[in-house]
Deep mutational scan, measured.
Amino acid sequence: TIDEIIKALEQAVKDNKPIQVGNYTVTSADEAEKLAKKLKKEY
């Protein structure tokens, strides 16, 4: 679900690790936030 994706992003940001979500690779908190907002609009 979208919530699980967002939790995974938040965890990756805390661990400061890049995370791959679908076609996106998120490497920073800023990118994670942008991706989360984008995904919320889509779903």
Rank of each mutant, 00 (worst) to 15 (best):
T1F: 13
T1D: 11
I2V: 08
I2C: 13
I2A: 03
I2K: 02
I2H: 05
I2W: 12
D3G: 10
D3P: 11
D3F: 14
E4K: 06
E4R: 05
E4W: 13
I5D: 00
I5E: 01
I5P: 01
I6T: 01
I6A: 01
K7L: 12
K7V: 07
K7H: 12
K7I: 09
K7F: 09
A8G: 05
A8N: 04
L9C: 04
L9V: 04
L9D: 02
E10M: 13
E10N: 06
E10A: 06
E10C: 12
Q11M: 09
Q11W: 03
Q11T: 05
Q11S: 07
A12L: 09
A12M: 15
V13E: 01
V13P: 02
V13C: 09
K14S: 05
K14P: 02
K14C: 13
K14T: 08
D15I: 06
N16T: 04
N16V: 03
N16F: 15
N16Y: 05
N16L: 07
K17A: 06
K17V: 12
K17R: 12
P18G: 12
P18Q: 04
P18W: 05
P18K: 04
I19V: 13
I19T: 09
Q20F: 06
Q20Y: 04
Q20I: 11
Q20H: 13
V21K: 00
G22R: 00
G22L: 07
G22V: 04
N23W: 08
Y24L: 09
Y24H: 09
T25H: 14
T25L: 14
T25N: 11
T25S: 11
V26Y: 04
T27E: 12
T27W: 13
T27I: 10
T27R: 06
T27Y: 13
T27F: 14
S28R: 00
S28I: 02
A29R: 05
A29V: 08
A29T: 07
A29C: 10
D30P: 05
E31S: 02
E31V: 03
A32V: 05
A32N: 00
E33M: 11
K34M: 13
K34A: 15
L35C: 14
A36T: 04
A36M: 15
A36Q: 05
A36R: 08
K37T: 14
K38A: 11
K38F: 14
K38V: 07
K38E: 15
K38H: 11
L39A: 01
L39H: 02
K40P: 00
K41Q: 15
K41V: 08
K41I: 12
E42Q: 10
Y43E: 09
